[in-house]
Nucleic acid binder design. Structure first.
Lengths: 132, 132
DNA sequence: TCGATATATATCGGCAGGCGATATATCATG
DNA sequence: CATGATATATCGCCTGCCGATATATATCGA
C-alpha cells in the first residue's frame, strides 16, 4: 500500500531470524512461542515468504545440516534484512502510537455514546500528531 | 495469519476515523497527511475496506452531507471498532518491541560480519522476551 | 509392532484483498 | 476551456496467505 510494504508473514519470519539463524520449521515454532501462541505462521505460507525474502536479499541460506536423517536448511538475515526489519518495526511502533493517541483524542468527543456524532462540531480538522 | 488478522488498510482507515467521523476522501487525505506522505491508502482499496469494516460492525455510516453539490458520506467507529483498533495497536507495538529486542540480541553475535554464522554456537535457544 | 505425533521439507489450488485504471460529477483556478 | 482538486464507485489483475496434501524419518505410548 505504501512504498516497500512488507507483509505480516515476512515480518514474523525476519523477527524469528533476528537473533540467530534458524531453519524453516524452527521459524514456525519460534514465531508461535514468541507470541504466546497468538501468531501462527502457516507451513503453506512459510516457503513462499522464504523465497521472496531471499530474492529480495533480506535473508540468505546460511548452511545445511543433516540432523538424525532430517535435513535442516538454516537461513539468516542479511544487513539489508536487519535494516528492513528495523524500519518496519519503527513504522509499526509509530502507527501503533498514532492509533493510541487518536483513540484517546476521540474519547473526549465519543464517551461510548451513540448518536450522529459528537455534540459540538470538531474543533480543528487535521492538526493531529502524525505517525513519526 | 492469526485469529482475527486485520489488514493494514483496515488499520489505517480505523486510525483515520479514531478521532472523529470522516468521509472516504477525507480518510484518504488524513492517512497520507498523518504519515507524512509515507502511507498512501488507494482509492481502489478504500471502498472495499469500508464495506468490510461495516459488515464486521467496526464502523457505521454516521451521516450524509451535501457540500457544494458533492456528496459526503461520513463514517465513524463503533465501540467494537475502537476495541479492535486498540487491540491491533497493542499487537503492533508488542511486535515492534519484540523485533527491536531481537535485533539488539542478534547484534551481539552478528556485528555486521559475514560467514556461516556466529563463531560460538548460540548460548540458549528460545528464552526470548515474547511479544507481549 | 503399530499408530500417532513431532520433526522437516515442499507444492498446489482457492480465495481474499490491494492497486491501477477507469468512470462520473461538481467546483475552482489558470 | 482545460486542468486539477474534491468525491463517489467499480472492475480485473496479481500478489500473497492458507488449507490440504505429499514425503520421509524418529520417537513414544498402547
Amino acid at each position: 500500500m505504501t512504498a516497500k510494504n512488507m507483509t505480516r508473514a515476512a515480518f514474523f519470519v525476519l523477527t524469528a531470524l533476528a537473533d540467530q539463524p534458524r531453519h524453516g520449521y524452527g521459524i514456525l515454532r519460534e514465531t508461535e512461542e514468541l507470541s504466546g501462541g497468538e501468531v501462527q505462521l502457516r507451513v503453506g505460507t512459510l516457503y513462499g515468504v522464504l523465497d521472496r525474502l531471499t530474492a529480495d536479499g533480506l535473508i540468505v541460506l546460511d548452511r545445511e545440516e543433516v540432523q538424525q536423517g532430517r535435513l535442516r536448511r538454516y537461513y539468516r538475515l542479511t544487513d539489508d534484512g536487519v535494516a528492513a526489519l528495523d524500519a518496519e518495526a519503527e513504522r509499526m511502533a509509530a502507527g501503533a502510537g498514532a492509533a493510541k493517541r487518536r483513540i484517546a483524542e476521540g474519547r473526549r468527543v465519543r464517551p461510548a455514546a451513540e448518536g450522529p456524532a459528537g455534540l459540538e462540531p470538531p474543533t480543528a480538522p487535521g492538526l493531529a500528531g502524525g505517525y513519526a
